[in-house]
Design a protein around this nucleic acid. Structure first.
Lengths: 205, 205, 205, 205
DNA sequence: TATGAATGAGCTTTCATTCAT
DNA sequence: TATGAATGAAAGCTCATTCAT
């Protein structure tokens, strides 16, 4: 875990370190990332880095967690409509998804970080960290899926984990496509609408 | 590019090298893979490795290309039915997809290699190699998509690249899910059927 | 030298620091011992440690000296019988030795510290510290040897330093053997008796 | 284990490396020894060192083994007289001991290395290596002890391990004393005679 | 008195690559 | 063709010590 010392650091210093680390991890992935480069870019000493973080993994998990939290805070809460029909469900989801993608498009580095998760993560500690992050989102996914099934918007004859995996895969593909193309922001709503439509078609009963 | 000398090598030697390299890359990913280990496992000398391949990236791209080609050859050709309706199209695709997944389930190392693509480092040479691989499959994907659109099985109002990306994303998610669960082979057809059904729903006009 | 400030510290604090340091040095030896760990275990700040001690070596020498003094105080004084024959001399020595070994067996950490002396690094300051410790015991050894020679219990034809070195070597070997075996305390008197007997045989005129 | 590559090295190179390593280990002990210093003193590259040896421990165990073997080869074999009385036994032992000490006095670095064995050796691999070295000498010690007991030169009422430990302790003390004083070689025989005499007195029945 | 942030030199080890033979 | 010795840059990480507060 991040050492509490880091929190006491001047915000600009914190920012410098986080920015440097996010940059490095997004650009090179975890394995290829070099702590030395982060240290140099952040303008701190080697000893300081290890004074703030326990090591490479610690820095990585901290950066990932902070950035995801920042993203979700920026996007705002998503409340599944407990009442309503399938159309209402999909409409609400589309709104949320648009906000999410808009934010993510503005954070290409975070997008790269998330995309890198698929990478082989051999260290147990890293795997655990990723699981924690995923588990943090898992309830949201499960609840949303259940809500969709409740209003008859989502099929119920396949394992929930499979449905979620496929939908997340669609989302990641779309994310990658969007970030790569860096489309006009005007186009985004239409594309998001199309994507949600595709998801709807994929999981409809 | 692989040096032509490699082709003159005794087939068993070629096999030994390819097997060792595939093993290493699948297990550790590109960056963490160690040429030293490959060399040791293959039972060749360091000099020989550099006599046959230009370097680590060269070996990686060669292994990836060869393995993908081997997989596709094993699966056999996919001929889009030029005549027929949407049902025929999807049925043909489902057949092909089942064959592909069956083969991939039998090659967990190749599956790991492909999954690792997202995470591979950003060396220009590596990126180029990946693009080449993807471009190798691209015509097939484009043709299949076009065929689907011709028979009215696939919507035509979105960029082809986006449709392909999303469908590939779905496939990768499913692949990961399947390989991780290592399901009974009996279950596979039903799951494949469901996946193709989901794809159909996603891209239907 | 220990800074006098240390003496003004609350006894519990002193104890905490000494205990932590003894633990660390006994477990890891001088070089591998980590001041950071000592500081953490003692629950003091890094600055405080350097306020009380000049550095690692200073702490080490202080701990060693204090612990040896504590041991000797616990064992009590050894008074060479000025009168009497050789038998009386050896009997008195055996009594003392038994007390010493009993105490040392109860302080495995100190035993480990002493045993580590041979291996401690060769920093001039450290060497000097060890010499000081040894010099502290030297008078006692010399006096005891002289007393033994006076009553005809010990040969006089070899350098005193050599006799002492050999006897100490025997004692250390026995100590190590005893601590390693952690024998029943009942056995101790007999073994001590045998050891003193061996020493007697070794140095008899 | 030492990599066979080392054996193929030019003898002068081997000597340079061994000399540098022996120097470093004898001066600083295992923990405090710095591979960087060894590398620099030997005049080879960092990579080469790791090409020849698996690591620090490997180098240490190799140096220790080689030096001990060299010493024993130099001293020549020791044959316990199967026949004869106690006097013959001790006389033979004294001869051998004189040869051993003469050789050791000429190798103060090896003496330092051996003395450093008592040090805390925390790494399992290191402990194992030391045990191997000790086990190599153990049979010799046990046989010699048994021979001494057979001819009535050594008491039989104490554990063999204890007797051996004490005698070895005496030897080490003597060794240290001798090496430190670096006495005239003329004096050596008399001192060795006295030491063997002391050992005889210590272990006599 | 007391703190703890900050540091940089140092550590062992790994690795892809070169090149003389 | 084929070998394997040699290399140096780079990696992640630890540590005793300093010093401003």
């Amino acid at each position: 875990m991040v050492r509490p010392r880091f929190a006491n650091l001047a915000p600009e210093q914190q920012q410098a370190i986080l920015r440097a680390a996010l940059d490095e991890f997004a650009t090179h992935g975890f394995h290829d990332a070099s702590l030395n480069r982060v240290i140099e870019a952040a303008g701190i000493s080697k000893g300081s880095m290890y004074y703030y973080f326990e090591g490479k993994e610690d820095l990585y998990t901290y950066v990932a967690r902070i950035e995801v939290e920042r993203l979700l805070a920026e996007v705002g809460p998503f409340s599944v409509p407990s009442q309503g029909d399938a159309d209402a469900f999909w409409s609400t989801l589309a709104d949320y998804y648009l906000r999410l993608m808009t934010a993510l498009t503005a954070s290409p580095q975070l997008a790269a970080l998330i995309r890198g998760w698929a990478a082989a993560s051999k260290t147990p500690a890293l795997q655990e960290a990723q699981q924690q992050l995923e588990q943090g989102m898992w309830p949201w996914l499960v609840q949303t899926l259940a809500a969709g099934q409740r209003v008859g918007a989502v099929r119920s004859d396949l394992p929930a984990a499979l449905l979620i995996a496929v939908v997340v895969g669609m989302g990641q593909a779309m994310d990658t496509w969007l970030v790569t193309r860096a489309p006009d922001i005007d186009d985004l709503p239409r594309l998001i609408g199309a994507l949600v439509e595709m998801i709807r078609g994929a999981v409809r009963p």
